[in-house]
Simulated scan of single mutants.
Amino acid sequence: MVVEVEITSLSTADSPRISGIDQEHVEALAVVQSPLPPITVHRSTMRVIDGLHRLRAAELRGQRKIAVKFFDGDTADAFVLAVESNVTHGLPLTTADRKRAAGRIIASHPQWSDRMIASVSGIAPGTVAEIRRRAPAEQAGTAGRVGHDGRVRPLNGTEGRRVASELIAENPQLSLRQIARVASISPETVRDVRNRMMRGEDPLPQRGKRGGGEGVASAPSGGTGPTVVPDRDAGQDRTAVLKRLNADPALRFSETGRTLLRLLNIHTISAEEWDEIIDKAPPHCGRIVAYLANECAEMWAEVAVRVQRKVAETA
């Protein structure tokens, strides 16, 4: 609900912007003829969460009141909303602002995963991880981290894999999701554990091997073993992320950007569609398909590493 409040009753303290407001931006907003969107205010403190420049523009216009949407929550969540709002629209936060904000969110929400904090603060997950490493020990977080999907995953997946392997051995009829919930690991990791057990391998990947991390299966040697299929929730999450990417002008209006979007969109099919593809793959083509799938996985892994490195270098 939008209400009008007295400008003098609002506080502008605790902004995520280190350098304060941009006066040129304020003056540009002040001459806009159409009404500006409501600002967001933390109800309990009356602090402006989002819309400081709009507030200053209203003052410059000589307004006594301004349209406000209230946020009900604690101070830490109000700061998170302030950062997220200023990353997604309006005058963007500087890199220094975003890194500083990420450090503060790590302190207030240590249970959040690096990717979750990165999505809020607008920096790379690797940069968040580096900031977390430099943070005091008490800010490092718990034994698990909360991801985008709200699920808690352990920092060390070894125990989760061990529990999953025991559950699979004792109750092979349990679904991936049931085991994942009990073991506090992702369904993809459960699938990898099950695949390893079916091949007679140790469910715990050896250290230093590619794909030994949480939620990622290692590539079978020779390219003939089963591959890991994304679960339904992961597919839906990728679809939501790609929807945002598809709307990005930097990608939509360049040939290389459109090529990248086409390649990424191929992988948004559901778990059921993957199952159907695998089930209907002709047996005599199985080894070739598995080989090419692993080759593509290797190629995408290299793309991921190089893109993350580039993001980290520019962050």
Rank of each mutant, 00 (worst) to 15 (best):
W274V: 10
G144S: 15
T239H: 11
A135F: 00
F71T: 09
D192M: 11
L176I: 06
D149V: 00
I269S: 07
T75R: 11
S175D: 10
A57P: 03
P35M: 01
L260D: 09
Q308V: 06
G141I: 02
E214Q: 14
A271Y: 06
R309W: 13
I117G: 00
D22A: 11
M116Q: 14
G103D: 09
G147V: 10
R306F: 05
D233P: 00
D74T: 00
E313L: 15
A101M: 03
R207H: 11
G103W: 11
L55P: 00
E24N: 15
G144N: 12
R64L: 10
Q111G: 13
G223L: 04
I277M: 14
H53C: 03
R244S: 08
R56H: 14
E295C: 12
V311K: 13
I277H: 11
R61M: 09
V229H: 07
L174I: 07
R306G: 07
E298C: 07
A78W: 10
L176C: 08
S119V: 05
S186F: 06
P92K: 05
V289A: 14
I266M: 05
A164G: 01
F79D: 02
H25D: 12
G160D: 10
A297M: 10
D74E: 08
D192Y: 10
K99G: 06
R43L: 14
K209A: 14
R232P: 03
P38Q: 01
M198N: 11
E313H: 12
Q236R: 14
S175P: 00
I106T: 07
D275Y: 04
V48M: 00
R207T: 12
S184N: 13
Q206M: 14
I117S: 00
A183P: 00
H284G: 02
S221L: 12
R262T: 14
L10G: 02
L263G: 08
R309C: 06
G235D: 04
T95A: 08
P16D: 04
R191F: 05
V152N: 11
V2M: 09
M198A: 15
Q139N: 15
S270Q: 13
W112E: 01
A96R: 13
G90K: 00
A102Y: 04
R306L: 14
R17C: 02
D231R: 01
F70H: 07
V289R: 09
G141S: 08
R207N: 12
G126M: 09
E276F: 06
V120K: 15
R98M: 05
P154E: 06
L242S: 04
I21L: 12
A82K: 02
A240N: 10
A290N: 14
T12P: 00
T227D: 12
A290T: 01
E159T: 08
R17N: 09
A82P: 02
R262E: 06
